[in-house]
């Protein structure tokens, strides 16, 4: 088997007495959509933050695309092709949707010490940005100031910004958080469209979506991976049912 895109080994992170990530080991294969699920407080966002570099782990290693990135700052990871979306919408509210995405393209097109050229006339930024917006179905909203877009559109914009950096892997932190059923359906379609060509680590509460999308699922409880496997295996696992899905719940 080829080397996994991301290898997480014995990762640990605690805040005071609370262990948020407990000896976590996980592989994400190239082209795989790997979902991490778990109850609230299981340490899912803490995990993504460590992978993206916003938080430093206490111990353990993270390898990405054949390199140890454990101590790399966020921008350097992004440069190496690791893109993240945020659970809480994180965009540039005063820019238009197109500006938001074009800025993400710009961030991966060398340095930004260019002081005179009008950025909004640079086709090498605008064209890929429009393409990324089209992938998430926002092409018609390109010129709308981000602040005035709906919550669902913000989530789509987040994905477009991550895609625009031409990443090797996407870290998606609850892309469907706070969405209605219709918007979630749209997001599932977007992610389905990316599946296969992008390596994705997905954190999501929406079980329905997770079981429809994931190639593999890891279940996190109190920072510990209690199970990892194909969706059918996870669905069948008694331990998972007990710990997380609830005895009575059928999924």
């Amino acid at each position: 088997m080829a080397e996994p895109m991301m290898e997480i080994r014995a990762l640990r992170k605690s805040f005071g007495g609370v262990v948020a990530t407990d000896d976590l080991t996980l592989d994400v294969g190239a082209g795989e959509l790997h979902a991490v699920i778990g109850p609230n407080g299981a340490g899912k966002t803490t995990l993504i933050s460590q992978l993206s570099g916003a938080l430093m782990p206490d111990s353990g290693t993270i390898r990405f695309d054949g390199r140890d990135i454990t101590r790399m700052p966020p921008y350097a990871r992004s440069r190496r092709g690791l893109a993240r979306s945020f659970q809480i919408t994180s965009i540039f509210p005063e820019f238009t949707a197109l500006d938001n995405v074009a800025l993400a393209v710009q961030a991966h097109d060398g340095h930004s010490f260019s002081f005179f050229r009008d950025v909004r006339r640079e086709a090498r930024l605008r064209d890929p940005a429009r393409a990324a917006l089209a992938r998430v179905g926002l092409e018609a909203r390109a010129e709308v100031t981000a602040r005035y877009m709906s919550h669902g559109e913000h989530r789509q914009l987040e994905i477009a910004m991550a895609l625009a950096t031409n990443p090797k892997m996407l870290l998606l932190d609850e892309p469907m958080a706070g969405m209605g059923p219709e918007e979630s359906g749209l997001m599932v379609d977007i992610l389905k469209g990316l599946k296969g060509e992008q390596t994705i680590l997905l954190i999501e509460h929406d079980m329905d979506a997770v079981f429809r999308l994931a190639d593999r699922i890891t279940v996190l409880v109190y920072g510990r991976a209690i199970a990892s496997g194909a969706p059918e295996e996870i669905r069948a696992s008694a331990e998972v049912r007990h710990a997380y899905l609830g005895e009575d719940e059928t999924v």
């Binding site: 966020p74 921008y75 540039f92 820019f95 991966h108």
Partner: peptide
């Protein structure tokens, strides 16, 4: 301007 609006996001997209 991006750094003013959202510095964390700016770092996250690689700047």
């Amino acid at each position: 301007q991006g750094a003013r609006q959202n510095e964390g996001r700016m770092e996250a997209i690689g700047v």
